[in-house]
Design a binder for these strands. Structure first.
Lengths: 203, 203, 203, 203
DNA sequence: CATGAATGAGCCTTCATTCAT
DNA sequence: GATGAATGAAGGCTCATTCAT
């Protein structure tokens, strides 16, 4: 029964993929998306370039794996939020906070998920999926709020896109400005305030 | 009188630059930013690669020209809006409409102006300038609104980033979804409604 | 009888060639041999590049013309020296002085006449001719000296090469060192002293 | 023990660099300095152009390596000569012999070391260093001779330039004339004789 | 003849991917 | 499986020369 051996093999495989993943993140952090070269990843992972190709068919697959791996916990958090037992406005705030915090931690992700260019088709598709997943969850939150009469009757999908884009804009601006720390509590609250209550003064 | 000859030369120059500009837009449209290659531009413009370099010192200058040319009328429109004799909310709406309409017309611009990666430093700088010009104008509009007591006291700069990002998000979503037409009147009004009045229902 | 017209044509031709020649020297002086580009010559001569090709079949021919034109008076001077009614040692000194002075005036010539690389075959051949002419004259002077018992019985040809090379070395060093003025009287006298009396002290 | 593997790697590296070096010399010999193209070197070395860049960062580094490699033993020989326990005249003769012999063996070197044009700045600098090293050593020899009263009181630096140039001239002439063998014993002795005793006959 | 814009072969360099060991 | 040197297509840019006006 080669099961044990097979299991070991699988574990090894996972470990290697993880090591390469970490190396990729390191390179991404140091050189940016354009500077992501396979030889740099190999060096960072302390393996040869050839080894990279034993675990990932090509650069695209590696990138896709990075995308999936990085986004998975964020997505899980999003799902936790939507299933949580709080009001839609609170869910929205939790969502915004989670998103901004995540992007703060993984700047290089921003580029991949939010940009469209410089990415090959498979990556673009992969990134689109992540973005759409997030959109959908955000849209669901909004939909809940509308249904409960807590939000005005906006189109959930479109509104999700707007809010998502707004957050992207915020992150991008901070990145361009090299303004560390990226996102702070005040950003989040102002962001929420705008979307909740709008610009208008009333009464 | 060498004036005529000189004028003809200048006109020819302008025509050629225009032809190359159009060709660049065509290549950008067909192959995307990453696929923008000088030989493709040359072929699209029905000239040789060498000719390209008679009109633009290098690829960067060509790109910068594209950026300037495309953005100039938009910027002018923005300036017209801020100088116009209407209320800040109306100005904001005009701004949003102008921006969304422009991006609808020139999708390839979105990429260059809103992305940061894959761009050489000069282009990045150029794009940043455009983005910042827009930000500034938008921030001014918001500031006016706040001063006139029509908007709640948000930080103009940060709010401008949020709104700008929101619009970008909307455009990006539409581009990815290949949903022509990109932006319609209903998008604009919903967008405005969100920013003006927020999500909250109020008693 | 179209003779007059023909003559005018010829004169015009000479004038143009001269203008282009001067322009070439100017470019050579400003940009060096590597920077000698046809468009620069054209601009300096205030004509179009096309016009250049009406007077010189190609860049090589232009260069050859420059070589000939510049070297002609020097060669004449050399011939005058060898025919003059002075002793071989005096002729030798006159030769050395003339050569060093000429090179001082036309640095760019040094490169072409004394180097071998970067030159196309026709130019190389042309430059070789000039060099050999000079060698021959110098050899003749030495031969005269030997025959008159004023010089020791060296092989004239070989000695000419040595002296020629020595002068070249002096010029080159000065050029590399950017030591203006290139050659001064003291250089010449020391140079002569070495060749005449050698290094040895003698009892 | 990874020492062996490491040693093999280093050896391979050295072998490859040598192969590329030889290929470069071959191309230099066949096409001259201007014809030295990376694809030609690659072909001559029977590798791809990309491989070249695994061993040399760029064309300049390759050229610099060629320069260093070729010149190193010559320089060593020069140093041996100056440190040797013989009289300055004998040192001078040894120097002249070594130089002429070396240039005879490596004609393509002449071009690079003795020319100034067509060389990129790093190469020019590298070549200048070699030339100056040689000059300095030669000047030292002369200085020793002067101090010991064996040479007349010439300026060592300038005299070194003259002698160096003379040798260059000799080599160049032979190269141009395609007169193999380049330098023979008689050349050397005549060269020495000229510099030692000068042209003058003395009573 | 003059013009000068157009040409396009030529050259250096990069980097994802392969494959012999 | 691991290695990492070899690969070679690709791409930006130059400049002598041509030719339609």
């Amino acid at each position: 029964m080669p099961t044990l051996a097979k299991k070991r093999k699988t574990e090894w495989d996972v470990m290697m993929k993880n090591a390469i993943f970490e190396a990729t993140m390191a390179v991404l952090g140091e050189y940016g998306f354009e500077g992501l070269r396979m030889d740099r990843v190999a060096k960072a992972a302390e393996v040869s370039t050839g080894t990279l190709y034993n675990y990932f068919k090509n650069k695209d697959e590696l990138l896709l794996h990075v995308l999936d791996t990085r986004f998975e916990p964020i997505l899980q958090e999003f799902l936790k939020i939507i299933k949580s037992n709080v009001s839609p406005p609170e869910k929205l705030e939790a969502f915004v906070r989670e998103f901004l915090m995540s992007m703060q931690h993984h700047r290089s992700l921003v580029i991949i998920i939010l940009s469209a260019e410089g990415l090959s088709l498979p990556i673009k598709t992969g990134a689109n999926e992540k973005r759409e997943s997030s959109h959908t969850i955000l849209a669901d939150i909004i939909k809940q709020g509308v249904e409960q009469g807590l939000f005005r009757p906006f189109d959930p999908q479109r509104t999700a896109q707007l809010i998502f884009g707004a957050m992207h804009g915020l992150v991008q601006s901070r990145i361009d400005a090299d303004n560390e720390p990226l996102i702070v509590e005040s950003d989040i609250s102002e962001c929420m305030d705008l979307f909740f209550s709008g610009l208008n003064t009333r009464g």
